[in-house]
Design a protein around this nucleic acid. Structure first.
Lengths: 171, 171
DNA sequence: ACCGTCATGTAATCGGTTACATGATTCT
DNA sequence: AGAATCATGTAACCGATTACATGACGGT
C-alpha cells in the first residue's frame, strides 16, 4: 500500500497543524497557519489542498468527505502520520538556513545600499511592531514552541531593522 | 522572438555573476557562486546549466559553443540582459524574507528546545568563524556589496548563536 | 595504466506557484 | 435582490531538485 513519498517541510506543517487541531479541512489549516506560523513559514492555500491529499494517499492522514452540501474534506492524522511527525520532531537538526534575502541579493550585485535601506527599515520596523503586539496580546496562552518562535522573530526583526538603519546612515 | 519569461532570483544571480565575469561557462559560474554568494543564496549546479540556457533562449544572454573538444558553452550578457539586471538593481524592495528555519519549525511544533539548541549553537558558531575569517582575509579587495552582505551574514550568525545559546541555558 | 577527483552535462521527476472557477454567506 | 467577500477547490505549468552519466586530468 504505502506509496513511498518524500516528506517536505510543508508535509510536516500539515501534519503538525493537523495534530494540534484534531480534525480539519484545508480551510481550517489555512486559518491556523495564517494565525501565526505563516509569518515565518507561509504556504500557498492551494498547497493546503494538495499536500493533505498527497499525505492521505500515502497513509499519513485519513480522509472523510461530507456527503451533502459542500462535500468538504476533513483530514485527521493517522498512527503512521503521528509516528512520522514525532520521529521528525525528535531529531534535532544542525542545518543552517540560508538568508536568501532579496534586498541583500540586490545590494550584493551593486544596488544602492542607501536606497535599499530606506525601503527595508520601515518594513522591518512594522513587522517588529506587529510581533511585539502579538506578544503583548497572547502572553500566557501560547504553547512553548510558539512562544520561542515568536521571540526569534522579534530578535530577527530587531536585528535587521538595526542593520539596515546603520547601512542607511553610513557615510 | 523574445519568448516572455519570468525572471527569478536565480536568473538575476546568473545575470549578475555573468556581468561581473564577462564571459563564462556554467562551471565558472559554479565556482564564482561557491566562492561567496553561495553562502547566503546557493544554487544547485544543474541550475547553472539550465538557467543560462533559459536566459539565452529569451535573449538575455548570448551563447558561444566550443567547436572542438569539450564543446563547452560560454555565455555573455547581452544588452537586453544588462538592461533587465540594471532595472532590477535600481528597484529597492521592501519585501521581507521569511525565516523558514527548520530548527525553529521543529521547536514550533513541540521539539525539545534544549536539544535543538545543542545542535544549533555549534553550527552557527562555526559559520560565524568562517565568515570572520573571510572578512580578515579579504578586507580590502571586496566590492561594497559583497562587503555589506558579509557583514549581514556575520550579524545574523552572531544573533542566532546567541539566541540558541540562551534557549539552551534557560531553565 | 589506473584511480580518484574535477568538470560537464542531460533526463526525469515533482513540489510549489499561478491562474482559473464556482459555491456559500453576509451585508446593504 | 445584488454586491462583495469568504470559502473551496481544480488544472496547468514550470523552476528547482535529484539522479544518472560520461569525459578530462593529475598524481602514483
Amino acid at each position: 500500500m504505502s506509496t513511498e513519498l518524500r516528506l517536505t517541510p510543508a508535509s510536516y506543517i500539515v501534519l503538525g497543524v493537523l495534530e494540534a487541531l484534531g480534525e480539519a479541512t484545508p480551510y481550517d489549516l489555512k486559518q491556523a497557519v495564517g494565525a501565526g506560523l505563516g509569518y515565518f513559514w507561509s504556504l500557498q492555500h492551494a498547497q493546503l489542498y494538495t499536500e493533505p491529499e498527497r499525505l492521505a494517499g500515502a497513509g499519513y492522514l485519513s480522509e472523510r468527505r461530507e456527503e451533502s452540501g459542500r462535500r468538504r474534506r476533513h483530514y485527521k492524522v493517522t498512527a503512521k502520520g503521528r509516528k512520522a511527525l514525532l520521529a521528525w520532531l525528535a531529531e534535532p537538526t544542525a542545518k543552517l538556513t540560508e538568508l536568501r534575502d532579496l534586498a541583500l541579493l540586490k545590494v550584493f550585485f551593486g544596488a544602492d545600499p542607501k536606497a535599499m535601506a530606506a525601503a527595508q527599515v520601515p518594513a522591518h520596523e512594522a513587522q517588529l511592531s506587529l510581533y511585539e503586539e502579538m506578544r503583548e496580546a497572547g502572553v500566557e496562552g501560547l504553547p512553548d514552541g510558539a512562544q520561542i518562535t515568536l521571540e526569534a522573530g522579534i530578535e530577527a526583526e530587531r536585528i535587521w531593522a538595526g542593520f539596515w538603519k546603520r547601512v542607511g546612515e553610513s557615510n
